[in-house]
Design a protein around this nucleic acid. Structure first.
Lengths: 225, 225
DNA sequence: TCCTAAAAGATAGTATTACTATCATAAATA
DNA sequence: TATTTATGATAGTAATACTATCTTTTAGGA
């Protein structure tokens, strides 16, 4: 039997639910492909429409604009990752082991998850690295936040914060450390590949080194307090 | 006697050196104002031209496009900050004291520097927080890097890395820790003010708390190794 | 002081982007 | 089979991101 994973999405992200139709799924699927290929700035609904054989208007029926489409796929990714982390750390009782696992999952290339058939998680992971912060680094961040568009990210941050607290109940900055882990897992990866002198991973270019760095950073911080 | 600070800029950032003319200085000055007010996405050369009473073509004579103008002011900021840090930590021999000072300077609101008359550093600091990573999170990052547009950021990173090594000669990740300090000084600030549940600073919203967090993070990492 | 070159102003024009609107047709569903 | 609902086809608009050209100022040098 084939299982299908469904991520419950915030309905304000779209005009029409893209999961329910072929066209909608194509918009998401090829949207992810185009954004990861050409970057978010060069991405337009017109190009997307051409690729999937529909018209601009067709795309606009699903998403108000490309920023909302970006928020949609990013929210999807955080939702999926929280599920994925929960799945992978299930039955792990030791919070230290759990936190190490989380760091590894965050900092390591994602393998495509076959339980989500039209979404390529490894491309999504690349988008998170290169475009992720553009989701909130806008003037409308307050508005978008009111609509709860960042809830999946916040939820994941809370989950990681709880693991941190389980490791070290007196640690004072669980949320900020959680966002530091998440953001640095991605920024160090981007720097390693694009501006290597900003990191210590320029020679090897190995994600495993980022994991070592983050482990060192996190566990020295929470152990002493 | 009034001293004037000049930052040597990479000539490939502009078509005509904006420092040398009234119009050029106005482009930079009001560019900074508009970007900090409305955000980089909403910023256009047409609006800028209207504000300073020239035409779009006038602005295009100085900067090829708005991305280059962003790179220019960001490079200027990093250059200025490196100078500022050097000045403020001059005669500080203890590297731990020095590193603490650096963290404070990075994470604390900038006061306008009167030795740079047409540039408002506190607005620039806001731009770095909200738009800073857009400088390199693009598909042209490789090209821009070849032109050395990120040199000031890299130089600052190297300086901070050296202070870290002076504190702890065996520490393995001086560059990555330096970028972590820089990026987190800004991201935690942005989150604190816009998505507070991603941080532990939501109640106070005090920059001094970010400084405490970063000090804790940095010094527990480098002390033990 | 006049001359000249560089800078700025004025104006026009183009391709692309980011949409909105309308109407016809096809597909799904009741 | 009737009727929503989704899609396709086409058109149109305002704004963006430029490029081009020509004229007028302005500043500096001989």
């Amino acid at each position: 039997m084939k299982l299908q994973l469904q991520i419950k999405m915030n309905e304000n992200l779209f005009l029409r639910n893209p999961e329910l139709t072929e066209l909608g799924r194509n918009i998401v699927k090829h949207g992810i492909q185009l954004i990861s290929q050409n970057g978010f700035e060069a991405f337009t609904f017109k190009k997307l429409a051409e690729v999937i054989g529909t018209t601009e208007a067709g795309v606009y029926r699903y998403f108000e604009n490309k920023h909302l489409l970006l928020l949609y796929i990013i929210a999807w990714y955080w939702g999926w990752l929280e599920y994925h982390i929960g799945f992978q750390t299930n039955n792990v009782t030791d919070p230290v082991v759990k936190l190490k696992k989380v760091i590894k999952l965050l900092a390591t290339a994602v393998v495509d998850d076959s339980t989500t058939n039209y979404i390529d998680e490894s491309l999504l992971h690349q988008i998170i690295i290169s475009e992720g912060s553009k989701a909130y680094l806008t003037k409308q961040v307050g508005e978008d936040n009111k609509h709860q568009f960042f809830k999946p990210y916040k939820d994941l941050c809370a989950v990681i914060g709880d693991v941190i607290l389980a490791c070290s109940p007196k640690y004072k900055y669980p949320r900020s450390l959680a966002t530091t882990i998440i953001e640095m897992a991605h920024f160090q990866n981007f720097f390693m590949n694009n501006l290597p002198s900003l990191t210590d991973f320029g020679k090897n270019k190995a994600e495993s080194d980022i994991v070592l760095f983050l482990n060192d950073l996190v566990f020295s911080s929470i152990k002493k307090g």
